[in-house]
Design a binder for these strands. Sequence first.
DNA 1: GTGTTATAGTTTCATATGAAACCAATTGCA
DNA 2: TGCAATTGGTTTCATATGAAACTATAACAC
Lengths: 151, 151
Amino acid sequence: MPGRVLLELEAFLPYRLSVLSNTVSQAIARIYEARFDLSVTEWRAMAVLGRYSGISAREVALRTAMDKVAVSRAVARLLDKGLIERDTAEHDRRQSVLQLSEAGWTIYDQVAPLALEHEQRLLDHLDAEEKQWLARILDKLWQVERSALES
Amino acid sequence: MPGRVLLELEAFLPYRLSVLSNTVSQAIARIYEARFDLSVTEWRAMAVLGRYSGISAREVALRTAMDKVAVSRAVARLLDKGLIERDTAEHDRRQSVLQLSEAGWTIYDQVAPLALEHEQRLLDHLDAEEKQWLARILDKLWQVERSALES
DNA sequence: GTGTTATAGTTTCATATGAAACCAATTGCA
DNA sequence: TGCAATTGGTTTCATATGAAACTATAACAC
């Protein structure tokens, strides 16, 4: 066996990120999937629409890092459930103009605090210094991947 | 609008983890999907078998954080491709005993260095201090979620 | 020992997903 | 102008996925 390279999965950053991210996301998802019958993609779309009302599907895709097919389907289901409203942009009739409906806001106002609460519970286990480093490191890694995507 | 809680997706830890993790994993996956016709689940199974030869499917599932259905299917495909071998455990004939085949090791020896190289490229953008904090913080968050799962 | 319960792994079924093809509106440009 | 290339969004199709049902073996209770 000539100097074989062994990959220690438990210590492999991409793997650790993936597992951590999945367990965290699933924990939160369980909250709103069961209680409000929302999928992760649906909630993500609602979350950006709560923050940026009136944006197009394309912008939802950009801001949620979902692909346009996923957004198209999430939008269709949310329309179906009456949680969002859709118009056509006047300046460009290809684009949609999306916003939460009354009913959508009612759900948003229940889910958003729950999600933030869960995040807080997670962050509560880190001290102030650790939180700062985490934010900084995520920013950096984020930018690395962003620039890699463009090249 | 009575003191509405707004969720800023770009600053929401679970979301940032998810996006970062996905872009990182996909970047690596592209390497071996195209070149070696391996899916993420297949490679993960191979990775743990490279490190822990002779374990059962159940243990593969535990160590990869995949569910048993996913493992079952990955194992089936890897057997098909001749990249792993399967026996039955003598002490418990329900359990399988899995290991990489000759051909499996040949692929492993090509993919493992590529994966580690990609990780390195990512970590190269962090200085020593940042790397230490990252490791420490991931450990902590990991444990939080682990203990949450048990309760 | 027999009956019950638990575990390892597979199969089934219904749903989720992404790539590619597609349609419609817009832009670029000769 | 008119026509090719681009863009926003949807649909199709083939594949991935997970929950639940299932099979086979093992462990436990009595």
